[in-house]
Design a protein around this nucleic acid. Structure first.
Length: 447
DNA sequence: AGCACA
């Protein structure tokens, strides 16, 4: 009722407790890692890991109050903070005095796991990949996959709860190895709990469900569809279907990426016909259409893993799209058809949808006007310095050394020019929100 | 970076 000072006063006070509250833990933090940093201070009687919406908090209960006090005092005066996987962990007394492990549904062990695969859509992770990953722990009887609000999910049936628990303990919070996934998938964390099911009812062998105990189960027609677009070939090699349309997923998107930005980047390899930018699973993706597969292949090869902006910002992951001709209906900063003549563009701008999209545009596209007036310019296959008018960026023309600085990550392609070789500064675009106030926006971040 | 579970 009353928001008396008595309540708020105690919210952040540090009444000692055997239970410690740890926060800012890495998402993947395991119970072992938690125990590792706590056990020097005393006997741990209980833990609760991966707590909270971000799964980055934990509770640790010591046998004795003094042990908890010793840990808190140690890190209160230590120059080295507590760390897990390089992340500073903040430790306080919990406002409760014991951990209650309410083993709710999802935590009561059973032989069927409910696996949520975060950061992917259904097509990204094949049932064969799931089978491969979980078979490491024992015979997988059945798999059923489905898409819900929570995302792409799978029910995985093992022989017994022991096997299922082993798989859960090993894989919960972990990622499926990158080489088993399409290239545009950045990360896909597995969130695993126990299902209440004990025996899945699989009716067909299909791309959505499998019964490995019954190879004679009828094959659903939709399974054929699944074999038409295999993420992996029979030998386990990546088998991508080439296309003139590239699917780009943009990782670490600190800065705005508009069609203009993408057009400039991808035009270095040939005529860009159409671009569509959209959001998928909280990340940004774009489809870039070239006239032919060869151009797309060159662009894909050259740009994969590279960043639009220096410093690891807007890292590109490219794969071939299933599309061959994009249906671009709006003309705004998220979608553009460069093959259209001016009249069509003007007509499009009066279409519903184009206007609303324009209001969300905080970055006016400088190339837009020039191209609308001269459709031939839109067909310009490659580099044209005049297209950069008003742009502070120093762009590398195609044919020069790599215009795009290699990403600083370990996953970077090894066959690319090393950082600092040649004039490798990333192209920059105006109006970068992260630029320090008052600073010219021509300097790349990190300068 | 700021408290779970019913």
């Amino acid at each position: 009722m009353s928001t008396s000072s008595g309540q708020t006063q105690f919210r952040y006070t540090q009444t000692p407790s055997k239970v410690l509250h740890l926060r800012n833990l890495p998402w993947e933090c395991t119970e072992e890692e938690l125990v590792e940093i706590c056990k020097p201070f005393g006997k741990i009687v209980n833990t609760k890991c991966n707590v909270g919406a971000n799964r980055n908090q934990a509770f640790v209960e010591f046998a004795d109050l003094n042990q908890a006090i010793s840990m808190v005092s140690y890190y209160a005066s230590s120059s080295e903070p507590a760390q897990v996987r390089g992340k500073t962990v903040y430790i306080q007394y919990s406002n409760r005095h014991e951990i209650v492990n309410n083993r709710s549904m999802g935590d009561v062990a059973g032989n069927v796991l409910l696996v949520t695969i975060e950061g992917v859509e259904a097509g990204d992770v094949s049932i064969d990949v799931i089978h491969l990953v979980f078979s490491a722990f024992g015979f997988v009887h059945k798999i059923a996959t489905f898409e819900k609000a929570a995302g792409f999910q799978a029910l995985i049936q093992f022989t017994d709860a022991e096997t299922a628990s082993a798989a859960r303990n090993a894989l919960d919070g972990r990622s499926i190895p990158r080489y088993l996934l399409p290239e545009h998938v950045n990360a896909c964390h597995l969130r695993i709990s126990f299902s209440a099911h004990t025996d899945l009812n699989i009716k067909f062998q299909s791309h959505r469900s499998r019964d490995y105990t019954n190879p004679y189960l009828p094959v659903n027609a939709s399974a054929i569809e699944g074999t038409l677009q295999p993420a992996l070939g029979p030998d386990g090699q990546k088998k991508e279907h080439e296309s003139n349309v590239l699917l780009a997923s943009i990782e670490n998107m600190q800065y705005a990426v508009t069609v203009d930005v993408l057009h400039t980047v991808f035009s270095a390899f040939g005529t860009v016909q159409k671009i569509a930018i959209f959001e998928k699973n909280g990340g940004m993706q774009a489809l870039i259409q070239y006239p032919d597969i060869n151009t797309a292949a060159v662009a894909k090869e050259a740009l994969e893993g590279h960043c639009i902006y220096d410093g690891g910002y807007c890292k590109l992951h490219l794969s071939y799209s299933r599309h061959t001709d994009l249906n671009v209906k709006a003309h705004n900063d998220r979608s553009r058809d460069y093959t259209l003549p001016e009249a069509s563009i003007l007509a499009m701008q009066h279409m519903p949808g184009a206007a609303s999209a324009a209001t969300t545009s905080w970055q006016s596209p400088p190339m837009y006007g020039a191209m609308a007036q001269n459709p031939d310019r839109a067909q310009m296959p490659a580099w044209d310095p005049s297209m950069q008018a008003g742009r502070p960026a120093a762009y590398m023309p195609p044919g020069s050394t790599y215009p795009y600085a290699p990403p600083p990550y370990s996953g970077a392609p090894s066959n690319q020019a090393p950082m600092g070789a040649g004039p490798q500064r990333m192209p920059m675009y105006g109006n970068q929100p992260a630029s320090p106030a008052g600073m010219p926006t021509t300097s790349p971040p990190g300068y």
